[in-house]
Simulated assay, not measured.
Amino acid sequence: MDYFVGLDVSLRSVAVCVIDADGKHVFERSVDCEIEDIAACLRDVPQGRYRIGFESVAMSQHLYFGLQCAGFDVVCMEARQVNAALSAMRNKTDKTDARGIAQVLRSGWFSKVFIKSREAHAYRALLSSRKAVQKKCIDLANEVRGLFRIFDLRLPSRVDQGSFDERVRPVIEADPDLSRALLPLLDARAMLYKTYRELDRRVKQAASHDAICLRFMTIPGMGADRGLHLSRHRR
């Protein structure tokens, strides 16, 4: 017999609801958000074919590939469609949401979400880390510029991020009051910029080994970071 399993996923727990092909309730339970616990929970369900469904969340990649490896037929559903279906329910709890997800899965009225590979997510994390550190470097440089104005010090409108430290540090060190306030800020930016350079090197190294990325980079103005993002977005 066919069974449909709805999972309402949170960070630490999962509400599990199992219904049969007629929509009748068979089984429900709340377990830890671990592949082994979900698989063990489903062993208490009568023998049959299972189809497991859940809406796209931050844990989707982990659950999708983990449950697939455990031998289950898994579907990740588009979150907006599932939320629209669940919004009609009178009582909103993890248990009732799991029931609703199971019914949506049984009906087939949903769109599947493509789950990217673990490798693609790893490259996305690399690009996000690089972008975050780069933004902090720019923020600290702008903070130094703003504090300079108080003391009637002006930097050129365009100073390359790589040469910012060597342009600014002599000015700060020449004034004891500025040194006390701004040297720690400048040291923090210098360390962040060093980290950014290392992350940028890793992005370029990854791009140089990706044929699709190299093809994207033949487009004028397309850098390694954007090319790697687009190439991994397709996988």
Rank of each mutant, 00 (worst) to 15 (best):
V74T: 06
A85W: 12
F72W: 07
L140D: 09
R226M: 15
C69W: 08
V5A: 01
F164H: 05
Y193K: 10
A141R: 10
Y64V: 05
M222P: 02
D152P: 01
A206K: 14
V31A: 03
E34C: 05
E143W: 08
P156L: 04
D165R: 08
V18Y: 08
F151L: 01
E36M: 10
Q61A: 14
R51K: 10
A85V: 01
R124H: 14
I38Y: 07
R167P: 01
L67H: 07
M217S: 07
M77C: 07
D73W: 07
K135F: 06
P184A: 08
Y3P: 08
K24H: 07
I150G: 00
H25A: 02
V74R: 10
V57Q: 10
K131G: 07
R169W: 00
R201Y: 12
D32Q: 13
E55W: 10
Q161V: 02
K92D: 01
Q103F: 02
Q81S: 12
I52A: 05
G48K: 02
A190L: 09
V82N: 05
G108D: 11
L147F: 11
C137I: 10
K136L: 09
R169L: 07
M89R: 14
I52P: 07
F110N: 13
V26H: 00
R145T: 04
K92E: 00
T93L: 06
I172M: 03
S60I: 14
K92L: 01
G66M: 08
